[in-house]
Design a binder for these strands. Structure first.
Length: 916
RNA sequence: CCUACCGUAGCUCAAGAGUAGAGUGUUCGACUGAUAAUCGAGAGGUUGAGGGUGCGAAUCCUUCCGGUAGGACCA
């Protein structure tokens, strides 16, 4: 027999690892099949039922409804997977975790698309098409969320378009009315002429634009300075000048009056300009002071009237604290119909109100200048500047770069415009809301300041929209009345009528039908507005949490992206404070946006142009949902989340590590039956006890990290454990006994017992993240129910100490010491394998490794993976030298130990062979 | 302009007063009994910059620079 044949024949006598669990994930193929299994066996319901049976406490994460348009992109996927990580980990921590997903269905974005496709539709038809559109995307998104392994009640999600949900929205409105929080008023709102509706603060996005700012002269005609000087205002919106009714100055600022000369034009004028800005004014307009300047206190100017530059009326000088000396002239153009500060100032000073602009943004007759009527305001800046120039009222102009609000849908600039709108009085709610904010846990902590800031300063909430695809504003105008009857009882009746039929009734029937149904006099008209969609989603704590028996309010957790501080968190808070005087949540967690690798915002269109996929489907179809889930777990959700395919791929490698670690454990357990073969802690060897101690730490760390939603820490801890402790050490060191010991030797069984515990613990700890892979491994381990029904492992008390860990630390020290010498020897070709090394350690007398070596001779040898070692006394530092061993290599186990002269095998292998 | 958070190896991130560590990538090597796997080694960091307090600072304080987000201004 040749040596080679020897080796071959002995291979058959080994217990090599064996498993059907595939090394390659093939996730794209396997996950859908597993998913089908989960759904056909009602896994979600089973988990809930199991926790219920165990009388588990509830943990409620209330799902924020994504908008039902568009595919699921990485940002949405991040949000849903984070939620699922929370739910799966809470469930494994022993809670009952009902998860009712929802969708936000009404609103401008959908109506916009529908209307764009075909114009001139009846409202009822717009609504039919909008609903079809929403439902189509709900299905698309639901499919994606399920594919990502997110478990929940997908067959019964909440939809804000559901009749019973709509009815609850109207009931919330009725409650607001009852509490006297709703009023109608004509004051300036942010108006999108592109979408022809008022907008809420959260529907506005800012863009940098270049405008022309102008300086305009208003000659004083009454007061101390009548005929003697002109006020000069500065504005970036010349189109608001026709609505000018006042000029505001700061009461405590000092203004200078005197002669200003424009040298080039040869013009001399008498102006009143705030002291601090005279220089800037000169630089921008060319008008420099050319004589003595008289100081005037702002407050003394009040009440004077100035001539409007091109209209036959005067503009009153008023006082206002908001005037600054940053830009302009210290005199602020006031158009009460076109700005909120302006509006308030106008109210306080009885200026009246002008808003000569229609829904489309065109001037109405009221504008007072014939050639402007019908002109669009944003095409009127130049004509107005020309008019001003013609009247010699234009003092100067400059280009001005600033951020200007735009409609989030139509992308057109927003104008402030006054039309009758409905509002919620925020002042009545503010104090309670602010108090509640401090009772809520905000994660990360600075979320508290963010929402506190917005609630503190937000103006009254404009809740009416001049749109069709939404819940109608349930308000009526009695015959002959200008003002609406805002009536809670009527609203409740509307709610009851729509409970089954839905609010389509509002659009399908006419005023007469409704008047009759509600017992109102003939000639009653309905309000044609719809409610702001933030009322829809903000009412979910009533329409969902109060309605579902398994949920309850306040929820334990709301979890959305940071933009919801202004959006859903706030609308929910306000409505909840109005309805129940308390916040609807105990904890609010926010995550950052998914941004491009170079930290630029991912807009879908820009990413597509650059050929960078951002659709979740692209990634789960190419890499698998578990890779995506692992990526989510590895990410720092508190800040912006940089994303790109390269970054994404980095998590594929750790995935393989997890998978292979589970696989080798499984493979080493192929002939192990815990019920029959497990041994007690006393039988375990040093490395077994060490890995059990490590496992206890890992369990504690992971469970604490899950508790704190620090998934990345779970990821790091487990990755480290698999890569370093298991793969590089434990599995490597125990190979010899696993493969070469007699199958049921105590030593081998002890290690199998350990591996069994490690496997079961590891697979459970990773299950919330690798939802599919963990379940697959669990199945291969012989379980016929899902891993997701399990709970997290408990640390084992027997291994709570650190005795084994301390011993292993010493051995690791020696191993590192030996490694250096071995590497040198291998390099100089003294021998090739570390197993051929004989190591001579030189240790000081008090070296802590000495007792370890003395107490665990054979195990130390195994751990060091060398042929033999000796210890000699060292005077200085510990060291190691190495030479080739004089032992023969056992052909069966390939270790270099003393071998039998007759069989050529080492003692252990000899025993195994002769007894088999 | 104000406020908050952040800035550590090519990349993604750990350590939160006591010799800067992982993963990934990269280079080299071993094994062929975890094999489209596994093991070992190397290279790679004056921890954004400067100053301060400590015996000692990535860590605490301060100024600046850069990034991001809110807010202010504007509307």
């Amino acid at each position: 027999m040749s040596d080679q044949d020897d080796a071959k024949s002995y291979k058959a006598t080994l217990n090599l690892p064996e498993t059907e669990f595939p090394m390659r994930g093939d996730l794209v193929k396997r996950e859908p099949a597993r998913l089908e299994g989960w759904e056909s066996s009602d896994l979600y319901e089973k988990i809930i039922a199991k926790r219920k049976a165990a009388d588990a406490p509830c943990y409620v994460l209330h799902d924020g409804p994504p908008f039902a348009n568009g595919d699921v992109h990485m940002g949405t996927a991040l949000n849903k997977v984070l939620k699922d990580l929370v739910m799966k980990s809470k469930s494994m921590a022993g809670y009952e975790c009902p998860y009712i997903p929802g969708w936000d269905c009404h609103g401008l974005p959908i109506e916009f698309k529908v209307v764009k496709e075909s114009k001139g539709l009846e409202p009822a038809e717009i609504r039919r098409r909008s609903e079809a559109f929403a439902r189509e995307y709900i299905d698309i998104q639901r499919k994606s969320f399920r594919r990502l392994g997110v478990l929940g009640d997908w067959e019964n999600p909440y939809l804000t378009l559901a009749p019973e949900y709509e009815a609850d929205i109207i009931r919330v409105f009725a409650t607001l009315v009852e509490k006297g929080l709703v009023y109608q008023s004509k004051k300036p709102v942010q108006w999108s002429y592109g979408a022809q509706t008022a907008l809420a603060e959260a529907e506005v996005e800012y863009e940098d634009v270049k405008d022309i700012a102008i300086y305009v002269k208003f000659p004083l005609v009454t007061g101390d300075h009548a005929g003697d000087a002109s006020m000069v205002i500065w504005t970036t919106t010349p189109w608001t000048l026709p609505a000018n009714l006042g000029i505001a100055v700061h009461p405590r600022f000092t203004y200078l009056k005197g002669e200003f000369t424009h040298a080039e034009k040869g013009l001399t004028e008498r102006f009143i300009i705030v002291k601090e800005l005279v220089e800037t004014f000169g630089a921008k307009t060319g008008f420099l002071p050319s004589g003595e300047l008289e100081e005037i206190k702002g407050e003394t100017l009040a009440g004077a009237e100035a001539q409007h530059p091109f209209l036959d009326r005067t503009s009153k000088v008023i006082l206002a604290e908001f005037v600054t000396t940053e830009t302009g002239t210290g005199a602020v153009h006031i158009a009460p119909g076109h700005g909120s500060d302006d509006y308030l100032a106008g109210q306080q000073n009885d200026l009246g109100l002008l808003s000569p602009v229609d829904d489309l943004g065109n001037y109405t007759d009221e504008v007072g200048v014939p050639e402007l009527i019908g002109q669009h305001v944003h095409e009127s800046n130049i004509p107005i500047i020309k008019i001003l120039a013609g009247k010699e009222a234009l003092v100067g102009k400059e280009k001005y770069l600033h951020s200007y609000p735009h409609c989030w849908r139509s992308k057109t600039p927003i104008i402030f415009r006054s039309v009758p709108q409905f509002f919620i009085r925020i002042d009545e709610l503010r104090e309670t809301a602010l108090g509640e904010i401090d009772r809520v846990d905000w994660l990360p902590h600075w979320g508290r300041n963010r929402i506190h800031g917005t609630v503190e300063s937000r103006p009254d909430w404009c809740i009416s929209r001049q749109r069709t695809w939404g819940v109608p504003l349930p308000v009526f105008y009695m015959p002959g009345e200008e003002l609406p009857d805002i009536n809670a009882d009527l609203a409740r009746k509307v709610a009851d009528l729509t409970e089954s039929g839905g609010t389509n009734l509002w659009f399908e029937h006419d005023d007469a039908w409704w008047a009759e149904k509600l017992g109102l006099p003939e000639g009653t008209r309905r309000c044609t507005d719809t409610l702001d969609v933030w009322i829809d989603s903000g009412s979910s704590h009533v329409a969902v949490m109060d309605r579902h028996p398994e949920l309850s309010c306040p929820a334990d957790l709301y979890l959305e992206a940071t933009d919801q501080h202004r959006g859903w968190f706030q609308s929910s808070l306000m409505l909840s404070v109005a309805v129940r005087d308390a916040a609807p949540y105990k904890t609010v967690m926010t995550h950052g946006f998914v941004v491009d690798q170079d930290k630029k915002k991912i807009s879908k269109s820009a990413a597509q142009k650059a050929g960078k996929p951002v659709d979740a489907a692209y990634f789960y179809n190419k890499y698998g949902a578990d890779i995506l889930r692992l990526w989510v777990s590895s990410v720092d959700w508190q800040n912006e989340v940089p994303f790109g395919e390269d970054l994404f791929k980095q998590t594929a490698e750790p995935y393989r590590r997890f998978r292979n670690t589970l696989r080798i454990l499984l493979a080493n357990l192929h002939d192990f039956d815990a019920a029959k073969d497990a041994v007690g802690p006393d039988e375990m060897t040093l490395v077994d006890r060490w890995i059990m101690e490590r496992l206890n730490e890992v369990i504690a760390e992971c469970e604490a990290a899950y508790e704190a939603f620090e998934f990345r820490k779970v990821f790091n801890t487990l990755n480290q454990f698999c890569a370093v402790d298991l793969s590089a050490f434990y599995v490597d060191i125990t190979k010899d006994r696993m493969y070469c010991d007699a199958p049921d030797s105590v030593r081998r069984r002890a290690t199998q017992t350990t591996m069994h515990v490690v496997f079961e613990s590891l697979v459970k700890l990773i299950a919330p993240i690798l939802a599919f892979t963990a379940d697959e491994a669990w199945e291969y381990a012989g379980h016929d129910t899902s891993i997701h029904l399990e709970t997290f492992p408990e640390p084992r008390e027997a291994f709570n100490g650190s005795a084994a860990t301390e011993a292993i630390e010493q051995l690791t020290r020696l191993r590192d010491l030996a490694q250096v010498a071995i590497d040198a020897a291998v390099k100089s070709e003294a021998f090739k394998k570390r197993e051929r090394a004989a190591v001579q350690f030189a240790l000081p007398a008090d070296d802590p490794a000495r007792p370890v070596l003395a107490n665990s001779g054979e195990e130390a040898l195994e751990f060091l993976m060398v042929s033999k070692f000796m210890v000699e006394d060292a005077t200085g530092e510990a060291g190691a030298s190495v030479m080739v061993t004089d032992e023969e290599e056992c052909p069966r186990c390939r270790r270099s130990l003393s071998v039998s002269a007759t069989t050529g095998l080492c003692d252990r292998c000899d025993d195994v062979m002769s007894s088999s």
